[in-house]
Write a protein that binds this DNA or RNA. Structure first.
Length: 271
DNA sequence: CTTTAAACCTGCTGGC
DNA sequence: TGCCAGCAGGTTTAAA
């Protein structure tokens, strides 16, 4: 059940075993993708990257695999010869002579010509990705003062992939707590310094979650990689902590609902 | 224009 | 052990 940080780490794991490798086999559970199996066999993987919560895998024949895990999808990497515990819900298999990358349960999978990739509906509407190193503080501030977004509540914006890609429900709560802002505010009603603080949190919290392996269950089939800070764990400061004391002021964390999703906040620190 | 609600995808947990 | 309801960190669509 992934947000941007979890998806970006999944893309890391896939890239580590696929990039630069030749596919010995491609398999799809979806009938409409069957014709691509032959087309991909023998092709080289040029790269695997996350865009927001989608993953794109590029091949050397002008095609790209687009996949979105939604709530349930999960990529697993196995060594060649290693058997999956179950093939139930298996949707995609990409195999090299050394590894197998398996996608389970996801239903949103497409093969797209490279030149059409930017027209893919989900990718086309993505805003700047908090986990893209190229995304800057100024990019986020530009979103905050963009009239397309500045009149909407932060509660809605912080789930909107067009505002900042990669955000999700736990990040929303943690970003707002870190910035010390209540969810009902609109960007245009905030002071410049508060907007700057929010822009900071919108980059810092997802990136910290990514580096520290976020909420990922250890041993869930993902590779251990050295680029992550394993000495430190991401901690929820408000998400899922209703009734427990705020670590800053001791006030009980409150659970509510906003934009149809559960939201947690410290009513004293976030005003 | 924005917000809300429902629907859909699938899996897990807890209660009976 | 089995079944069902409820919930879930997502997204899209339609309605309000």
């Amino acid at each position: 059940m992934p947000e941007g940080p979890e998806i970006h780490r999944a893309a890391d794991s896939l890239s580590a075993v696929l990039t630069g490798r030749t596919l010995t086999r491609a398999w799809f559970a979806f009938p409409e993708l069957k014709p691509h199996e032959k087309r991909l066999r023998g092709r080289e993987v040029l790269g695997v990257e996350a865009r927001g919560k989608a993953i794109v895998t590029r091949f050397d024949n002008g095609w790209t695999l687009y996949s979105h895990n939604q709530l349930y999808g999960q990529w697993r990497v196995l060594c060649a010869g290693e058997e999956a515990k179950t093939t139930r819900s298996l949707r995609v298999a990409l195999e090299t002579d050394q590894h197998r990358a398996l996608l389970f349960s996801a239903s949103d999978v497409e093969l797209i010509r490279d030149e059409d990739l930017d027209q893919q509906p989900y990718l086309a509407r993505l805003g700047p990705d908090a986990l893209d190193p190229a995304t800057t503080h100024d990019d986020i501030r530009a979103q905050l003062i963009n009239p397309r977004f500045s009149g909407r509540s932060l509660a809605a914006l912080l789930l909107d992939q067009g505002f900042v890609a990669g955000m999700g429900n736990y990040l929303r709560a943690e970003v707002l707590f870190d910035a010390g802002i209540a969810a009902h505010h609109r960007p245009r009603d905030l002071d410049d310094d508060i907007r700057a603080r929010l822009a900071n949190a919108l980059l810092a919290i997802p990136r910290h979650s990514y580096r520290t392996r976020g909420v990922e269950r250890i041993g869930a089939g993902m590779r251990a990689d050295l680029q992550y800070d394993d000495g430190e764990r991401f901690r929820f400061r408000v998400f899922g902590r209703d009734g427990k004391p705020c670590e800053r002021c001791g006030t009980a964390i409150v659970r509510s609902e906003s934009a149809g999703r559960r939201l947690y906040c410290c009513p004293k620190c976030q005003q």
